[in-house]
Amino acid sequence: MKQTKLFALLMSAVLVLGLAACGEKGGNSAGSSSAVSSQAAEPAAYSIAALKGPTAMGLVKLMHDAEGGEDLANDYTFSLAASPDEVTPKLIQGELDMACVPANLAAVLYQKTEGEIVTLAVNTLGVLYIVEKGNAVQSLGDLAGMTIVSAGKGASPEQALRYLLDKNGDSLGGNVTVDWKSEHSESVAALASGAATVALLPQPFVTVAQTKVEGLRVALDLNKEWDKLADDGSSLVTGVIVARKDVVEENPGAVEAFLKEYAASVDWVNGNVPEAAELIGSYGIVDAAVAEKALPACNIVCITGDEMKEKLSGYLSVLFEQDPQSVGGALPEDVFYFGA
């Protein structure tokens, strides 16, 4: 397969959230909207990478079946990485066929490779929560006058919170202040020490924080808040799975078969939480005990086709309006969306 030119200093220009996170399960989770018709295809061999966190959680059943020699449509080799920096060079150079990455990074890669990246599915929706030690926050409007601790300045937490506050008539940096931390663990520490009472956190950090801070509660689910305020069919999207364009063009039927098996894996994970948590722990993605508590609140999905395009393109448009460089300087063309 041809190799695409590796763009030097790519990752320094990318504004991504390296989350190990998941949001509340909701919506359509199992490849419900693929617009690609089933077609006979020869089995293919795919090398697939995922980040430790929610983008890997939905894959664990398929990973387990592949390792166990189950009868699958294709031959899969999976690998796990701690950050997008480990994945993107291998994807661009052709060492990987597919990868689970943050949603805006997919758009950045599409621009940097001049269209050589295709998005196959949304695999994680909203991941962010406002947590509070107390009961003062019941709505977005209650954040006015408050200081929130959070990591992710310039990335998804800031972009999502800014959009929601603007839609609600408030403003980030105006009547709502954020004390930005370098890592989510610092926000948890601030809550635990009493230095902060309100934080913006992703799962599973929410679950971890609740084990350390007595009385900490989830005040707002930003995924739900986005759905209330967005009027364009978009969703708060955290992660997607992408493939190299040449991989898709070589055998689109095999790619579609993969998506069906991916969707089945997602359904199994969401429907078998204790067993899925054990698998997640065995792969070193998230501790099994944490995974079991967090999974019921995880928005792990496999949304494809037209619905994928609607949700993802709307989300990318919001990011583009705030900072064009966060999506690579331009919005992707229609060919970016597989099956739509």
Rank of each mutant, 00 (worst) to 15 (best):
D323V: 05
T238Y: 14
T211S: 09
S29R: 10
I280L: 01
G271S: 15
A192I: 00
G314K: 14
L295C: 00
S193T: 08
N251C: 08
G233P: 02
G68A: 12
E116V: 03
L72I: 05
S317E: 15
A291Y: 06
K5N: 06
G58P: 13
V206L: 08
G53L: 12
L316G: 10
A99H: 00
A107V: 08
K52A: 10
A340C: 07
A107N: 08
G339F: 14
E292N: 05
Q159V: 05
K153Q: 10
T207C: 10
E183G: 05
S33K: 05
L80D: 07
F78V: 02
A40S: 13
I280N: 01
T124P: 04
V318R: 13
D170H: 12
V301M: 04
D142M: 12
V101L: 15
G26L: 01
V301A: 11
A277L: 03
L279S: 05
Q93Y: 02
L125E: 15
A155L: 08
V108W: 05
G174T: 03
G18T: 10
S29C: 10
S317I: 12
N123M: 13
A209G: 12
V60D: 01
A263S: 15
L222F: 04
L62D: 07
F320P: 00
Y129A: 11
A257D: 11
R244T: 05
T304K: 11
R217M: 13
A330N: 04
D179A: 12
V36I: 09
M63S: 04
E310M: 15
Y110T: 02
L15Y: 04
S185A: 15
A66P: 13
W226H: 04
D334Q: 02
E24K: 11
I130C: 13
V36R: 13
A209P: 10
N272S: 08
A13N: 09
L200N: 02
V266W: 00
A276S: 15
E333G: 11
V335K: 05
G141E: 11
L222Q: 00
S182Q: 10
A195S: 14
T77M: 09
K112D: 07
A192E: 11
V242Q: 07
V149C: 13
W226Q: 03
L236F: 14
E256P: 03
S34T: 03
T211D: 14
I300K: 09
L164C: 07
Q159H: 11
I130L: 13
V60L: 00
G69H: 04
F258A: 04
M63F: 04
A276W: 02
L220Y: 01
V131M: 11
S156N: 15
S32N: 05
N123G: 12
P84K: 10
I285E: 07
Y110K: 02
A20F: 00
A49S: 11
E261Y: 12
L164S: 12
N272H: 08
C100H: 01
W268E: 00
I285H: 07
V188G: 02
E186S: 06
A103V: 04
G31L: 11
G284H: 10
S12V: 07
G134I: 12
